[in-house]
Amino acid sequence: MENFMKLEIAALGENESFARSAVAAFALPLSPSLMELSDIKTAVSEAVTNCVVHAYGRETDAGKIRIECRIEKTGFGGTLHIEITDFGRGIDDVEKAIAPFYTTLKGDERSGMGFTIMQTFMDEFSIESEPTKGTVVKMSKRIGMERTAEIPRAEERERVNA
């Protein structure tokens, strides 16, 4: 059976750390490298922060963030699929929003690099947004693929040594 998990959390800043740690922990059966884990945590942190800061703003009643993950096994490694959904105000101009250094909150020390980091650190990235309805970010990362190439070589070495 394909492994999956679904998590619903309040869009609060204190959940940013929990959300990225939970997704990273879910990915552990794929034996990710430290760098792969760090990439996943960073991408999730960016997406969840967007929900907290932009989707619901600083309203007193925090909205909901839904995080769904799925592992697709392939050989020694696999692919981690992550979907992060909010039900907030949505993005008017997605193309503008994902451009590097673009931010709507200039005075806030925001870098505008969130989406660029998600795109760079993950293998696949897509976003769908509808104003007043919310936003869905989908990201995938292939994990452990380098080792699939290394393992046969190690076995070969053993055969040569034996």
Partner: peptide, 13 residues
């Protein structure tokens, strides 16, 4: 132990 894009704004600030 962890830094996301917040670190960019923090350091430039």
């Amino acid at each position: 132990s962890f830094m996301d894009s917040t670190g960019i704004g923090f350091l430039i600030g």
